[in-house]
Design a binder for these strands. Sequence first.
DNA 1: ATAATCTACAACCTTATGGTTGTAGATTAT
DNA 2: ATAATCTACAACCATAAGGTTGTAGATTAT
Lengths: 127, 127
Amino acid sequence: MTPAEIDDAFHALADPTRRDIVRRTMTAQISVSALARDYPMSFAAVQKHVAVLERAHLVQKHRHGREQLVRAIPATIRRTTALLDQLESLWRDRIDRMDAVLADDDAADPARPSLTPHHPIPTRRKP
Amino acid sequence: MTPAEIDDAFHALADPTRRDIVRRTMTAQISVSALARDYPMSFAAVQKHVAVLERAHLVQKHRHGREQLVRAIPATIRRTTALLDQLESLWRDRIDRMDAVLADDDAADPARPSLTPHHPIPTRRKP
DNA sequence: ATAATCTACAACCTTATGGTTGTAGATTAT
DNA sequence: ATAATCTACAACCATAAGGTTGTAGATTAT
């Protein structure tokens, strides 16, 4: 997933109408015109929203007769979630590192709860 | 998390510079000017990026002498991840429902693998 | 054949976005 | 005291975003 693709994905999700379209097309295929009926905007506007989602690979369209059915692509959602998880993991790693430092420094008390405040802790050296 | 807040969060994350700022401030507090030195744009531009992240509650600033230290707010990342997980869960629920339908319909074969293609499956009724 | 429906796309308008430069206020260092 | 650093913020500019209307092409229904 290139940075540009990530940009597209997050940008696409930064709009309530588009998030709703993704939500609805996760569990069913819905035509563009059927989608358009439920939003307070023109058909063309909804068409553009779908195009944005398509560009971000969050949905796919495929013809069925004269209508264009839209369905979400779960894999892209998953990969976007994974990106955020990665950010979160930085935080966890940070806590782990702090824990490790504290453990090295204060190994005599294994019952110590793993509290890790934001600010550096004044280390108490063993005598 | 209101829709507008969700908009702000995704919009803030839809830019590589801002994602990088979040990434870096997850594990350390960095001043705005220190951040600004590492991007090919003016200080004011970076200042604006931080403001966007701040508005989305993805980072917090706090004064330390004459500099303004930036740190990420993991809780907001987590809540954004949770939103995407929720979308994914729709997909899982859909699969579960399909499985349930197939189980009701074909309970005699519990060894059947849980394959659930996108297209509706022609149900084969028991005689 | 004709009408109705669904889609595609262009042209246009308004506002938001992402960048710039410039000026001024606080705070720290010399 | 003066200079250097960090920040805040305004003004400006180009372009992208999100909406509109209008026209035309396919496909289905009457």
